[in-house]
Structure formats: C-alpha cells, structure tokens
Nucleic acid binder design. Structure first.
Lengths: 339, 339
DNA sequence: TTTGGCGATGCAAACGTTAACATCCGTGCA
DNA sequence: TGCACGGATGTTAACGTTTGCATCGCCAAA
C-alpha cells in the first residue's frame, strides 16, 4: 500500500525504495531487483498526492479558456499538450463559459497550490481599482502566461504570445478595400474581450487610412456564437446603408453571418463579402469557403506553454510580448464589391 | 504562510484555524474575527496540496475524451462541469488524440491518487488477455463511469450512460429507406471505436430488415475527421453502384462528406442524401442543413458525472447502463431517392 | 596494516493539514 | 452548593513521501 510496506517486504529502508522510484541509478542492481519484486507483489502505486505535497508542487497547469469545443482552441491545446507531456505536467481546464472572471480567482489557484501555473487564454474582468482589500501586495507574481488575448496595462507585466490583432484586422480590412468595398461592417465580440476590441481597432484604422467612413451601426456587437452572429448580421442587413462586406471578429461568427445572409436571400460573395479570423477547420468546407486570417494556433500553444515552464522554474526571462505572424487566407467568401 | 503562523498571530491553536476554515459555525464569533484578521494580515491561503493529502482525496476528476475542440463534446462537457462545480470537483482533461490507450493507463491515475475518478468518453484499447503481469487483481475497481461509448464485455461492470447507438442508427437508416433509398452507404469511424461499430451494426440491421443489400465497398472506414470523411466519400462516389444516400457515423464526417459531394459536382440532397449523428451546432448552418440524429449531450454529461460522484462516495448503485433517448432531426440534407 | 574516500544504504525530520481525543469553562438543574 | 453536561478550544498524532545527514563496508593507495 505505502512505501513502508514495500520497504519492509524488500528488506530495505523507505529511503531506498524512494530512491529506486526516483533515481534508480543510485541503487545497486541487486537491491533494485528486490525492490521491484516487492512492488510487483504488493501492487504498490506511489501516492502522487503525498509526493506532490512533499515536493511542494502539483505538476498541474490551469488553462483558462472561454469555452472548450472551440475548434480554434483545439489547435492551440494541441500545442500546449505537446509541451506539457514533454515536461510532465497535466492540464486542468477551466472553462469560463465566456464570462470574464476576476484575475484573483485564477491566481489564487496558484497560491493555494492547486496548480503550478496558469495559461490564460481568455479575457478577464477589468481590475476595479479601489477594492476594499489590498490586492495581495504581499504575494509575489504567480507564474502566468497570456496567450491569444491582447493585454491590458495591468497585465503586461506577464509574458504573452499572440498575433498582432490590430495589424491583422487592418490587413483583412485592407484586402476588402482593395476589392473595391467601401461600406464595410464589423461584427465584434462582447465588449469585455480585448481581443475583439483590438481587431475592431485594426478595422477602424484601415478604414480611416483609406478615408472611408464607418457609419454608425456598421459595427455591431454580438455574442461570440453562431446565434449571436446571426442576430448581429440581421441588424447589419437592415441598415439603411447596407455594407457590401462584413468583417467578423472570428470564424465562428463568420459562419453564422454567412448562414444568415443566405437565409435573407442574398449571395456570398456576390452581394456581400465575408471575412473571418482564426481559420478553423470548418472555414474551408463552408459554402462558400471562408476567407479568413489564420493564426499559427499550435505554435501559439506551444510557445505559451514553454514560457510558462520557464516562469515556473523561475528563470524569469523577458516578459515582452511574443508576436507571431498571421496570414490572410483568401478563399471564396470575398469578391469584388458589387457595383 | 502556513496555518501555524495564522494560529500564532490570532492567538489560537491550529485546530481552531482549521475549524474556522472548514466549519466556521463551530467557532465562536469573537474567535472568528481574530482568525479572519490574522488571515487577512498574512495573506494566508490554505495549502490545497496538504489538505488533499491529509484527506486522501484529490477532488479531481479525469475526463478522457478523443479530442477537445469537438463541438459535440463541448455540450457534454457543459453538463459535466455543472455537476463538478456543484460537487466541488475540478476537471482534468485527458485528450487521447483519438488513439485508444490502455485501460490501465487511466485506472492508474486513481490508484496513484492523481484523481478521484474517471469519466471515460473515449474508446480504449481492447484488452489483450494473456498479458505478463496479472491484471492488478489485488486492486479494487476504481470509480469509473463510461459515457457515450458503447461498452465491451470487459467494461460492462461499470456504470455507463449513452444512447442506444444500434437503435438510433437503425432509425436513421430506416428513415432513408422510407425515402426510397435502396443503395445506402455508411461511413464508419476507425475500427477501434465501439461507438461507430454499434452505429454500423444498426445500419446493417435496418438494411437487413428491409431486405436491402449492403454491397461490398458501401461501408467505408474513415478517420473521424473532415479529411478522413472526404477520402471515404471519394471512395463511395467512385463505387460502381454509387449509393444514393450516405449515413455518416457522426456529424463531423457528414460535413466532410457533403463538402466532398459538392466538390464532385453533385447535389445534396438531390443526387445524394446525407445523414449524420450528434447534432453539433454546425449541422444546421450547413448548406444544406444537415439531417442528423441528436443525442442529449448535456444530459449525458450531467448523468455520467452524477453517477461518478456516487461511485466515488462508494454508494455502489446498480451498474446498469443508462440509456438516454435519441431523436431524429430532419433537415434538408435528405430527400427522396432520385429515380 | 592502516587510512582515506566513496558508493550504497539507513535514520529520522519535515512538509501543512485534519481530526480524534483531551481539556477547560460556564451554565442550568437538582 | 455541587454536579453534569455541552460548547469552545487546545494537543498531538498521523497521512506518505523525500532528503539531509549519518553510517557502514569496501577498495585502493600509502
């Protein structure tokens, strides 16, 4: 049952069994055999709980994300897992259900030793400054790495890995403008998401640069779901100056938008061009295949996880944001503006 | 830092602090205040590792699934999470990357106290019987509940929650037959998945009952991905007796199939009807919207988790399989057979 | 033969918490 | 006034592992 029984049975001390388990090369061949057979006989399995307790680490990483089942995040997770396996961490997934939670809610998981580090792939509640209790000033910064999301001033002390959302969205918008579109709408996510906020910023920037107006009502906020995008699209379609192109803050919403446009009896891209963001796997099997901006999802996952490992080991490297490249993928959901 | 410091600062014993933390009602108002202010002052956070170790439980549940990012599993997870939160469990996700692993690999996580229980939503490697080491005969059955997947004889000692895959697939096939289809193909998942195996069984059963032949080459095995389904569909389309309808073992593959059929210049459902399984959220925004068989995903998640909690608490209820109802959702990807 | 050194192993403390048991004190009742 | 009872709190062992230090024995060099 416990290491003691094994030790007793093998006629050695608990220390030796422990060493056999963790540093086999430290124990002599003859002893190794004895210990192993005692282990076999008892069916002993080391108590991870006790081990972790003793070592003061959990070997657990919390990954905070808006929702599992997001086809884009699946790819990010793949990268995370690769590194986690390699480094001996297990992954605890925390689904925020697209709500933004308090930052402390997650950091506490580290302070209370529920996890060794945090990978934040979701947006968090904005700090409300004048809170009653002091913001845990007596605690050091826990190991946290931010991925995907853009970052508020409060958080930029942590390492982060992401694409340049502003530039990427500007690229996408610019592409639409090149196609001759002048009335371009934007479907944003909820306001609390910095990520979609940055993409909106990029969209506005490109419009401004091209000296195109952004009519009020062209930027609509939707929940980041198919249904949310459909509602948003309906609003856009009934606008008195209906856009000829729609930029969606992510592919999920783009799929919803296309569906709704077709439902309204319009054609994509002949009547309205649609462009998404993320390049999820469903993008290319859509009808029409979705033009979108790809992020190197797996790479982002891998890099965030690597930096987290560094942060945990205390090798507090630079906390500069790592920017990875995005890429416009042109498919069939965009075309020249109708005349 | 530790409970001792807090106790010292508050002028009470560690036991009192512990009681305050776990059963506040046991400690007098006056003491409570003292303790709380000591906690505030020190910024103390209970060490979960130590607590779990002492209590002998991890408060962790492993959910084993083929892949995160599966839109269907997302709904199942939602149900799981609801119960987990309610019962104070955290969820450790284990992604098998669609490989089937050894059963022991998971049960060991319980024996080594990495988790309190296991929710198995993926298929596992078939037992190879004559293994060298005795199959842990000295260990009791760990708390495991099976969800979604059909179950081998070796595993039916564990509780499980699922739809009747055979009957459901038979229903779907029957519906196609009713529409006048006689040549019906079936795209299965990999052979190691019992789930798709059962669905195939249901398909064959319905065909047999209708006295329709299943030509060799009408049942094709694909990886359970869009690309896998596309390959499988190509094989089906080039069959000398091309099916007029295709039953896909899940929606993901059905989406791939529809895409490939359209690529080949054929129309869904005019030339070929397609039916899926699961009713993922993308099913209804497909073009055409996908006819499919819905499973009560969230309910399945909730029920599996509840049974797991029971199993952990040792109230070893009946280990009968719970069968939840499926439902045929008719959309536009199916139509009368072409004449 | 003695001695120094080293590899292998044993001993025992420590990690932070909980909980069984002991103790203390006040209150109500006989 | 004494006693019993119960609520509040204290004392302490225990959970299973790791690890610093001590010990033991063996071999090589002097």
């Amino acid at each position: 049952m416990s290491i003691k029984k094994v030790a007793q049975l093998a006629g050695v001390s608990t220390a030796t069994v422990s060493r056999y388990l963790n540093n086999p090369e430290q124990v002599k061949e003859r002893t190794r055999l004895k210990v192993q057979s005692a282990i076999d006989e008892t069916g002993y399995a080391p108590n991870t709980l006790a081990r972790n307790f003793r070592r003061g680490r959990t070997s657990l990483i919390v990954v905070v994300l808006p929702t599992v089942g997001d086809p884009f995040l699946e790819n990010v997770m793949r990268g995370i897992w690769r590194v986690a396996d390699e480094q001996g961490y297990s992954i605890l997934i925390r689904d925020t259900q697209s709500n933004s939670h308090e930052f402390d809610e997650y950091t506490d998981m580290v302070f209370s030793k529920q996890a060794d580090g945090i990978l934040l792939l979701a947006s968090i509640s904005p700090f409300e400054e004048p809170t009653g209790k002091p913001r845990a000033s007596n605690k050091v910064h826990p190991p946290i790495v931010l991925g995907l999301e853009s970052v508020t001033a409060e958080l930029n002390q942590f390492p982060s890995v992401r694409v340049d959302n502003v530039a990427a969205a500007a690229d996408g918008t610019h592409y639409l403008i090149q196609l001759g579109h002048q009335r371009i709408g934007f479907i944003a996510g909820k306001r609390n998401s910095l990520l979609t906020h940055d993409r909106e910023k990029g969209y506005r920037k490109a419009m401004r640069k091209a000296k195109l107006p952004v009519a009020s009502g062209w930027v609509v906020e939707g929940e980041q779901t198919l249904e949310g995008a459909r509602r948003a699209t309906r609003r856009l379609l009934s606008h008195k100056e209906r856009p000829t192109a729609i930029f969606c803050a992510n592919d999920e919403m783009a799929l919803g938008a296309i569906h709704e446009i077709k439902n309204a009896g319009l054609k994509v891209p002949e009547d309205i061009s649609v462009i998404g963001f993320d390049d999820i796997r469903y993008a290319e099997i859509m009808d029409p295949p979705l033009t979108t901006i790809a992020q190197p999802a797996e790479e982002i996952g891998e890099r965030t996880m690597r930096r987290l490992c560094q942060a945990i080991e205390g090798s507090d490297g630079d906390s500069e944001a790592e920017i990875v490249p995005h890429k416009l993928i042109v498919r069939k959901s965009t075309a020249n503006a109708p005349r």
